[in-house]
């Protein structure tokens, strides 16, 4: 195993970097899109609510692999050339945004109902009340579940391996196929994932206890 690390540390680190990069881009993207659709879902206009609901249900009930492969194979045929990394990151962003929309919506609902009315009666517009009163409180509630979503996101980014996204799992597959040292290779890859996810997961549990 030491030999494996000594000869393969470069592709492994490159893979780790791509995994982290893809996860961060997808996290930021899905936070923005997710919050947007959460707001649509609780909007006072019926048509917007329907749009929000449909978006969330569609992306929550279709496998990430199907979404990612569709972006990788179909978009380049008709729209624009995108590589595996981009296709994977877009797929991951859209998929995760549906979960974040649900989380944020639950967070908004947990903020006491009277507050919105109070803000409105104090002369604030709906947008102002959302922005200054409701959303800041909601975000505090949803930090632990969002943390868990981020851990899922890091794990799910391994789907990039299917579309040649040069992430950690892809590099692991190549090294395993190349050296034929399957189990040791995946063991190292596993440790590298744990280096990202395990501390995050312990920190989230700590945070959950503190906030509870």
């Amino acid at each position: 195993m030491a030999h494996l690390i000594a000869t393969q540390w470069q592709p492994l680190l490159m893979g780790l970097w791509n995994t982290i990069l893809c996860s961060i881009i997808a996290l930021i993207g899905s936070m923005i899109i997710g919050t947007l659709f959460a707001l649509l879902e609780i909007s006072q206009t019926r048509i917007l609510r329907v749009i929000g609901k449909v978006y969330v249900e569609v992306f929550r009930n279709i496998p990430l692999l199907v979404i990612t492969m569709a972006f990788f194979l179909i978009i380049p045929m008709y729209i624009a050339k995108i590589n595996g990394f981009t296709a994977g990151t877009i797929g991951l962003t859209l998929y995760t945004s549906a979960f974040i929309a649900e989380t944020v919506r639950a967070g908004i609902n947990s903020v006491e109902g009277g507050q919105l009315e109070g803000a409105l009666s104090n002369g604030m517009t709906y947008h102002q009340a959302m922005r200054y009163i409701i959303l800041p409180q909601a975000f505090r509630v949803v930090i632990p579940p969002l943390g868990n979503q981020f851990i899922n996101l890091v794990k799910n980014s391994s789907v990039l391996a299917f579309v040649a996204g040069f992430d950690l799992m892809y590099q692991g597959n190549l090294i395993a196929n190349d050296t034929l040292q399957t189990i040791p290779t995946y063991f190292i890859v596993g440790i590298m994932y744990l280096i990202i996810t395990l501390p995050l997961s312990y920190y989230m549990r700590h945070l959950e206890k503190k906030l509870a």
Binding site: F72, L73, I74, P76, M77, K81, N83, G84, A161, F162, V163, A164, Y170, N173, L174, D178
Partner: peptide, 29 residues
């Protein structure tokens, strides 16, 4: 591996099986 020997400047994308590779060629990947 042979591509790395015969055309070292090209970038190689490795997919999991031939069905994926053929589909990716058709998708201009």
């Amino acid at each position: 591996k042979n591509v790395a020997k015969h055309a070292p400047k090209a970038r190689v994308l490795q997919l999991s099986d031939y069905a994926q590779a053929m589909t990716a060629l058709k998708s201009k990947q």
